[in-house]
Each structure stands twice: as C-alpha cells, then as structure tokens.
C-alpha cells in the first residue's frame, strides 16, 4: 500500500526581509485511496505545503522529511517527483505559448511512463477524458493555458491528472473561482480518478463547498504553518458553521 509521509516539516521562503518561516512542523500521512482535506485561513501555509511537495525552487525545506513509500522525495528533482507518482493541480497554471495541449499531454505521458503511449489507445483516452470534463475537441489544438478561462484551466489540470494517473494528487484550491457547474464537473473528474486508480488525494481548499462533491476521509485545519486540529468529515461541517475565527482568536490570545 503506497503511502506519502510528511514528518515535522519546516519550510521557509526567501523574502527581501530575509528568510521567512511558513511551515512550522507539519505531520501528515496519506495512504493510497484516502482523501485528506486541508483547510485553513489565507496565509496559513496550505499552498506552501502543496508547492513543497511538488518541489518548487522558491521554498526551502529547513528540516523534516517527505517520503513516498520510504523514498526520500526531497532529494528528487521536480520531474523525478512527478515520475515517482506525485501530481500537483495548480491554482494558477501558467501559459505555455506555442505548445499545444495535445503535444504537451503526449510529452508528459511519455515522460511519466518512460515510453510513448500506444497512439490509438492514447487518442481514445484523451478524447473520452475530455468529453467527461465537457471540454470541446478544439481544446486539444490550443496552446497550453493560453487564453483559457479560469474554469478551463482547472479542467485542464484535472484532465492531466486523469491521463497521467499519479499515485497521489495534491489539488491546490482547484475549487477557487469556479461556478457551481464547473465545480461539479471538476469534482466528478477527481472522483473518477479515485475510483479508477485508487488515487490518494490531498485536497487544499479555503472553502467547504467542494467537500459536498468530494468526500474527505480526513480533515486537517491549518493555522500558522501547522495542523491545529484534525478529524473526520464532521470537522468540515463545523468549519462551515463557525468559520476559522475560533482558531484565529485562540492564536491572538496565546
């Protein structure tokens, strides 16, 4: 059983004022097939956790470890992590002019699998995944994220997740900026991937509304770079009613 383990993770980011600590000791264990929701107020370090797992060069790991089935993830380059089975659906995917979606998807799939996918099979997979995500077929010939609407970008992220078939996916505020229809389509995609490949999901979100469509097994509340509270799905319901105030007030008086 594949497992992603994060132990006592401390991460900082370089700013003009020097090194600024963001994560202050995060412990988290995700098993394949599980869905963990990470919730928390703005600036609590949720996205930092996502980008640190993926290996963005902006973040420095000061101490702690991330392992995937015992392998040291922090020692891997960004692309090695992806090939090891990690996937990050980004909050703000960048445009890549001149590179078509088709070309990009095929190049990524070839890199992940170590060999080019059988062409007929691949085209069929791409087409059906796009259809499931209600993406027009002309989409494939457009340049990656160029001129995509917010909803199209998020669907394109989920499309990649479905096609690249990672072991663990980190979804960084994939719900933000989506209307309810797009939210449902995106959630269906995540649920399909869970069902088809027994994907482990780390769902990072500010709001509870996506949790109506993607059911978490565990909920962790992030405050000031650590997990302040964790529990089952019922914790999300409580957050919906109460908001994050209780954590923030506690901090202010601490």
């Amino acid at each position: 059983m594949a497992v992603l383990e994060i132990r006592d993770l401390h991460v900082s980011v370089q700013t003009e004022q020097g090194s600024k600590p963001i994560l202050r000791g995060v412990d988290l264990t995700i098993k394949k097939g599980e869905t963990h929701a990470i919730m928390g107020p703005n600036g609590s370090g949720k996205s930092t956790l996502a980008y640190t797992i993926a290996g963005h060069p902006k973040y420095t790991v000061d101490s702690g470890s991330i392992t995937l089935d015992g392998q040291d993830v922090l020692a891997m380059t960004v692309d090695e992590r992806a090939r090891a089975g990690l996937f990050l659906a980004m909050q703000y995917p960048v445009e890549i002019p001149g590179v078509t979606v088709t070309n990009f998807l095929r190049t990524a799939k070839t890199a992940i699998d170590g060999e080019a996918p059988p062409i007929r099979h691949w085209i069929k997979d791409v087409k059906s995944s796009m259809k499931n995500l209600r993406m027009d077929s002309t989409f494939a010939e457009r340049n990656v994220n160029e001129g995509f609407s917010g909803g199209e970008k998020k669907r394109h992220e989920v499309l990649q997740m479905e096609l690249l078939k990672p072991t663990f996916a980190v979804l960084d505020e994939t719900d933000s900026g989506l209307d309810v229809d797009a939210l449902k389509i995106v959630s269906e995609g995540v649920n399909r991937a869970k069902e088809n490949t027994n994907l482990g999901v780390l769902l990072i979100t500010h709001y509870t509304r996506i949790l109506r469509y993607i059911k978490p097994d565990f909920v962790h509340v992030f405050v000031d770079g650590r997990i302040a509270e964790q529990g089952g799905p019922e914790l999300a319901d409580r957050l919906e009613d109460e908001g994050y105030d209780r954590f923030l007030v506690g901090e202010a008086t601490a």
Partner: peptide, 28 residues
C-alpha cells in the same frame, strides 16, 4: 521559471522542457 516548473511538475525533464518551450516559441 514558472513555465519550467509547470512542465517539470508533469514529469518532463528540465532540458526537454526548455526545448519544448523554445520550439513552441519559434514554430509559430
């Protein structure tokens, strides 16, 4: 750098990612 990160995060090695971007840029 963000383009590079995006492509690498999809498993594409750095060198290949750079080529992909330049090729795309000029192929237009």
């Amino acid at each position: 750098d963000e383009q590079l990160f995006y492509l690498q995060a999809r498993g594409i090695p750095e060198e290949e990612a750079r080529r992909l971007v330049v090729r795309g840029f000029l192929t237009e």
